[in-house]
């Protein structure tokens, strides 16, 4: 059971730089991802949208595993800026966790 953190939603999910709300959950992104990691990027973004900060941070590794190669984005049917979203999550972690 993971608790929803409304502050995380405000900081991430509804931030202008994070646009995964358009996601229709089709899963093409995950299917074409060369990393072959179940979480990338669909499920990861879903965690972010739901405000599950714990789940997102638990998967910091996966967030940095993304190649930013945009294969997913090229195939995204909903025009989600996937690479930019991943970068945004990294920037959140850099600031909030790594304090860089």
């Amino acid at each position: 059971m993971t608790k929803v953190n409304p502050d995380f939603i405000k900081k991430v999910a509804t931030s202008e730089e994070f646009n995964a709300t358009a996601c229709i959950n089709c899963g093409v992104c995950t299917a074409v991802c060369p990393m072959d990691v179940e979480l990338l990027p669909r499920k990861l973004f879903r965690y972010a949208l739901l405000g599950l900060e714990g789940k997102v941070l638990e998967n910091t590794n996966v967030i940095y595993q993304c190649l930013l190669c945009k294969m997913c984005e090229e195939n995204c049917t909903a025009d989600v800026h996937i690479a930019e979203n991943v970068r945004f999550l990294r920037s959140y972690i850099s600031k909030e966790v790594f304090k860089l």
Binding site: T2, V4, R46, L52
Partner: peptide
């Protein structure tokens, strides 16, 4: 949550 394949969430 169905879309995360059954993640249990608490609000």
């Amino acid at each position: 949550d169905v879309l995360t394949f059954g993640e249990e969430i608490e609000i």
